[in-house]
Design a protein around this nucleic acid. Sequence first.
DNA 1: AGCGCTATTATTAGTCG
DNA 2: GCGACTAATAATAGCGC
Lengths: 187, 187
Amino acid sequence: MASLNQPKSSNTTTKATRGRQKIQIKKLENESSRQVTFSKRRNGLFRKASELCILCGCNIGIIVFSPKGKPFCFGHPDIDLILERYLSKNPNHDDGSMMSGDDIAPCLEEFNEESRETLEKLEEEKKRSKEIQKEKEERKMKGLFWWDDPIDNKMGIEELEAYAKALEELRNNVTNRASALMDVFAM
Amino acid sequence: MASLNQPKSSNTTTKATRGRQKIQIKKLENESSRQVTFSKRRNGLFRKASELCILCGCNIGIIVFSPKGKPFCFGHPDIDLILERYLSKNPNHDDGSMMSGDDIAPCLEEFNEESRETLEKLEEEKKRSKEIQKEKEERKMKGLFWWDDPIDNKMGIEELEAYAKALEELRNNVTNRASALMDVFAM
DNA sequence: AGCGCTATTATTAGTCG
DNA sequence: GCGACTAATAATAGCGC
């Protein structure tokens, strides 16, 4: 079996495109199919999480924000318990110092130990972002960008430059935030 | 498919026991296989989450506590951003103070420590746009997020709005725009 | 929105090195 | 205990309802 299984395509009246097509992990542009996929895969994700909880006796909390910003949660045994447990291990969340860049690193390091593939994918994304950033800088030197004028002329260049110059010292930390900003604007 | 599944175990050739066997979702009692399954499926879960993020442009945060209590997290764009966003929508956690208008760029706090002069300039800039900032606070009450503010404070509200509006026109290319924004910061 | 279907791909349990 | 491999099951894209 499994040799040449023509799916009913000898009868060309019916659609031959049933069944799963090879996927490519790129953003789905079609609005409705993106919505359908979001719903299906979100259920699949929660099912997987539930299975993992039962199989291995672990605790999992998941928060999903849909493209429109609607939140969906999964929690075993309870999402808020998971969050409290996590936040209690990361005390920086309580006060103003909650978001120092160093917060992320330990989390990612642990993650790195056990999940190298996924981490590498993240790194690839960061690198790609950096590359594009360099391109942009080079092209920016030539004054090619339409947004140069609105920003530079209307707002105080000096303040921005001073700020940005110091910011560059921490660019490695900020790079993480770049993708975050990206998503903020993408929402 | 599910109707007649003879397990094919009548195949007497080698490697009859390879490959996946039908699973049933109950706790794995064997310690080592539970550990292996935990690692494999956790990676699978994070991969699925990553795919969902890319395909549908959503934001996902996952916290997993292993049976031994070790935490693993996944976040796109960032686990802490997801958590703040979630917690800000669920005021049970009395984090309201963290979104006060005086809280500038908490994600860059360590930067601020190193660059106080620049920070003072930021303060000046912030005072200049007090009125608009109040508007922003109102919007924040409606569910916008604290990480909107650092951008606003740094760049000036009106300019940013014009900028964001233009950004929206090119929504299809969010990645490029995000790096461009970072260029502005980093130049 | 959601469910059923099915061809196809993706994930993974068990095993080996 | 880890990768790699493989066979088997599970998930799902695209359709119709």
